[in-house]
Design a protein around this nucleic acid. Structure first.
Lengths: 200, 200
DNA sequence: GTCTATAATACGATAGAC
DNA sequence: GTCTATCGTATTATAGAC
């Protein structure tokens, strides 16, 4: 079928059926990412897609719940893409290279979404944060397990893992499409830097 | 004189005379850093120091101006400490080590202030942002000049500079006092990682 | 399901007493 | 210089027509 190639790789928004619920979430990502959650009003989101502010509350119980939905989709997407990146690769060195390439490129391509999921954790309600934190732990644990094979001094694994993930996550802060290097190029370069950090 | 030892190293808040203006700024750093600028109200800041919300407007023309004052102090502090860190050192390798140690430790010690100056740039007014951007350029230019001597491939200097600064800046996002490594320890470790990144 | 209109509240900032 | 009281506005969310 003609659409198989675009649906083979998991769509970021597959959790949401296409329709106003997805359109609203995508508009909210752009607004939250550019201006921050609290600086963004329901009017900003609604105006961007030509709807009234009230339309939001047909598809989401609250603005806070819209943020939670976005955070969940984003965190699950980056985790799933990271897991998929190492699938079928046996060499430890190559697995780390592929993971870091993918993880870094994801934060460049989806830098607005990445800003929301990385810098708006404090805007989540406590119960929402608890669920998101569980996904984040799975991602961090996966990375540590991959990095473990390249770090000789085990006592440094934890700090090195934090540092290597941190390097890629911060891409979301400074990345400017068009001005910054292409996501694949950046991913390849960062993969080399992470190898250097782990082996040092 | 007895106070010479504490005043020899430049005080972060030396730009502000001690008094309500400084107290307000310090309280605002804690609140902005923990909850974000737009999520923080003038009541939050005032309550923290036992004043009324109206007191803020005696010492600052607006909440936006309070943010600008904080941003200016923070950016000038991290720049000045970075410049001081390499003063009198001639060896390029040692200069980079000292700079990264200081720059990283600063973002750990002052992680709440660092969050404000790194993640609230979009909350600044255009004219304020312009002035802040000039200070940021000086810091980035200084770092690139220091790193230049350790990067053999000149075409990679720009991207490596972004990456190395990025690594230390992101400390502000995840650092938790007591739980995370001590600032000096983290700085020393990160200095080694930056060397590995630059030389790779 | 979407709109207009609006309720209820919270916010930044000011007025005026002390 | 600081307070209490409050103004004007903006915000989240709801009510009710279509």
């Amino acid at each position: 079928m003609e659409t198989s190639e675009t649906t083979a790789i998991s769509d970021l928004w597959e959790m949401l059926q296409q329709g106003p619920r997805r359109t609203l979430a995508q508009a909210a990502v752009d607004e939250f990412g550019k201006r921050g959650f609290h600086a963004t009003t329901t009017r900003h989101i609604a105006e961007r897609i030509g709807m009234s502010p009230a339309a939001l509350y047909i598809h989401y119980p609250s603005k806070a719940d819209l943020l939670f939905t976005i955070a969940k989709i984003g965190h699950e997407a980056v985790l799933n893409e990271s897991l998929a990146a190492v699938e079928g690769i046996s060499d430890h060195h190559e697995r780390v290279l592929s993971f870091v390439r993918t993880f870094t490129a994801w934060h460049a391509v989806n830098h607005l979404l990445a800003r929301v999921i990385q810098y708006e954790l404090h805007s989540l309600q406590p119960d929402h944060l608890k669920e998101i934190a569980a996904i984040r732990r799975r991602t961090a644990d996966f990375a540590a397990e991959e990095f473990r094979h390249l770090v000789s001094d085990t006592s440094k694994l934890r700090m090195r893992t934090v540092a290597c993930l941190s390097l890629s996550i911060d891409v979301a802060r400074w990345y400017v499409p068009g001005k910054s290097p292409a996501p694949e190029e950046l991913g390849a370069e960062y993969a080399q830097l992470v190898i250097a950090m782990l082996r040092s």
